[in-house]
Amino acid sequence: MTTPVKIESVLGMLTILLNDSNYSKWAFQFKSVLRGYKLFDHFDGTLVCPPKFVLNTETRVTKEITSTFQEWETVDLALLSLLIATLSDDAIEHVLGCKTTNEAWSTLEDRFATIFKSIINMLKIEFQNLQKGADYIDKFLSKLKSIKDQLIVVGKCVSDNDMIIVALVGLPREYVIIRTVILAQVTTISLKGFRAPLLNLELNCWSSSLYGCYVCPRD
């Protein structure tokens, strides 16, 4: 049987409070810690609640509560308290009235997984549709990296090559030659190797503009 001391030690390892913006990080930490202590089976329903009442020899239900149920309930309520301790004030509202850890966990998954999916979809759309516009190259690439980092935080892998392809799509027409050259390359280019020619072209554009030879069009 899980002891209160064991549950208290687990609580000290759970440092993230669930809110609308950090479900993936919270769930990852919570699952990792609880599985490490062999306690997550209450949450995912693997450890099914045993019969509450004793059956007599004639298989009729009595009013006597089984010891296995009492032990299971004690642990489950302690774990439910542990779960609640990792929730923000807003998140707690969604588990009010839940009587078991499995009920509470399922409720939180249903609620926050939907929000989580919406966040991922919005980040993907923003990432894929970002345009350089009037931004300098470094600012444009910084915006892309910021979205990429947010996607990685929510568990979506974005490779450097993915970022390069998206950046190429978002570049204006004066970068068409660089786009063509990079897309035609057989070997993979690094982000550093990708950034250098873009900066060189940007510098040349503004140098030409300074001397009145050429004005780099800016969308």
Rank of each mutant, 00 (worst) to 15 (best):
P4Y: 08
V5M: 10
I7Q: 05
E8W: 07
E8I: 13
S9Q: 15
G12V: 05
G12Q: 09
M13S: 13
L14Q: 03
I16H: 05
L18C: 03
N19Q: 06
N19I: 13
D20E: 15
N22E: 00
N22M: 01
N22T: 04
W26F: 02
W26H: 06
A27V: 10
F28L: 08
F28R: 10
V33C: 05
L34K: 10
L39S: 06
D41K: 02
H42W: 10
H42M: 03
D44A: 08
G45F: 01
G45N: 04
V48E: 03
F53R: 04
L55Y: 05
L55S: 06
R60F: 00
T62F: 01
E64N: 12
E64P: 05
T66L: 01
S67L: 13
S67K: 15
T68M: 07
E73S: 12
L80Q: 09
S81G: 14
L82H: 15
L83F: 01
I84Y: 14
I84V: 15
A85W: 13
T86F: 08
T86Y: 09
S88Q: 08
A91M: 03
A91R: 01
A91H: 03
I92H: 09
G97M: 06
K99L: 07
K99D: 12
T100F: 01
T101R: 14
T101I: 13
T101W: 08
N102E: 09
E103I: 03
A104Y: 10
S106V: 11
S106L: 11
S106K: 13
S106P: 01
E109L: 12
A113E: 15
T114Q: 12
I119S: 11
I119H: 15
N121Q: 14
L123M: 11
K124Q: 15
F127H: 05
N129H: 09
L130E: 11
L130K: 14
Q131A: 12
Q131M: 12
Q131P: 08
K132P: 02
G133M: 06
D135V: 04
Y136I: 12
D138G: 02
L141C: 05
S142Y: 10
K143E: 13
S146Q: 08
S146P: 00
S146N: 08
D149G: 00
I152A: 03
I152W: 02
G155N: 07
G155W: 13
G155H: 07
K156M: 06
V166A: 08
A167S: 10
L168I: 04
L168F: 04
I178H: 14
T180Q: 07
V181L: 14
A184H: 11
T187R: 15
T188Q: 12
T188N: 10
T188D: 11
S190F: 01
S190N: 04
P197F: 00
P197L: 00
L199R: 10
L201I: 08
L201V: 09
L201W: 07
N204Q: 08
C205A: 11
W206H: 14
S207V: 10
S207A: 09
S209P: 02
S209H: 10
L210E: 12
G212I: 04
V215R: 09
V215P: 11
R218S: 12
